[in-house]
């Protein structure tokens, strides 16, 4: 039975994740409205991927709570996973399967009806520019093609909530625009998207709201326009640099 809709796709309260002496997520609290494209920004090692991993049921938080589409990620991870699609930062694909087989496999793991899966796979592969290459083994794909395959694998079951972790890294401008098109399509159909990216202009163009985290803490949360106004910046990148500094970070 579905829980009562709260209008919130994600609700995080006092979330903490510690690895021995490193605190990756530090008392994080925010919510994302259903149908929103939410840009989750931060320097390397800020805690973005850890947050996504907790929200997608892959990691258990040290403390705090989180719900996704109304389901507690710790108590009902199965129900959460039925409603989300995750495009990981490092594209994970089965090299011995074709592009189409990779996408269909993920659809089958989501129990999609066969006919719907076939239609959705063909449509998605066309959208990401892999229609003609769909019958080739993914192990022979270029880096950009692999990333686009990974995106299609995440979206094949048309999830209510999509976590897209750096979906456009390494893509040429055409592929990048196609990916933006997919995100806009999701938004147009009321889906929720959590977008992490180092291309700040991408977040500025696509996101309804942006959250900036650093050292596991949320340091800014608002619409791109409001953040620029608040910090007297011409664009979101200036805001980002102003808040997180110029020091180069390494992944933890």
């Amino acid at each position: 039975m579905l829980p009562q809709s709260t209008g919130q796709a994600i609700s995080i309260k006092n979330l903490v994740k510690r690895y021995e002496d490193v605190t990756a997520v530090d008392d994080l609290s925010f919510s994302v409205e259903a149908g929103e494209v939410f840009g989750l920004l931060g320097p390397n090692g800020a805690g973005k991927s850890t947050t996504i991993n907790i929200l997608s049921g892959l990691l258990e938080p040290t403390s705090g709570s989180a719900t996704v589409m109304g389901f507690d990620v710790q108590k009902e991870p199965g129900k959460v996973k039925e409603r989300i699609g995750v495009c990981p930062q490092e594209p994970a694909f089965f090299p011995y399967l074709t592009g189409k087989e990779n996408v269909e496999l993920m659809g089958n793991l989501q129990d999609m009806p066969k006919e719907k899966l076939r239609e959705r796979t063909d449509w998605l592969l066309d959208q990401v520019g892999l229609g003609e290459a769909s019958s080739r083994r993914a192990g022979k794909y270029s880096g950009g093609m692999v990333r686009r395959t990974s995106l299609a694998m995440a979206l094949v079951h048309d999830p209510e909530l999509a976590f897209l972790d750096e979906p456009t890294v390494g893509l040429d401008p055409q592929s990048r625009r196609a990916t933006w098109g997919l995100i806009e399509d999701l938004k147009g159909r009321g889906r929720t998207v959590i977008l992490t990216t180092h291309y700040i202009e991408e977040a500025e163009a696509l996101s309804d709201r942006v959250g900036i985290i650093d050292h596991g803490r949320l340091i800014a949360l608002d619409t791109p326009q409001a953040l620029m106004e608040e910090h007297g910046a011409e664009n979101l990148e200036e805001v980002f640099i102003k808040l997180t500094g110029r020091k180069i970070r390494e992944e933890v």
Binding site: K81, E82, M106, Q110
Partner: peptide, 10 residues
């Protein structure tokens, strides 16, 4: 990362 990818599904 394929086991992780599978574990992102139900």
């Amino acid at each position: 990362g394929l086991l992780r990818r599978i574990s992102m599904t139900p």
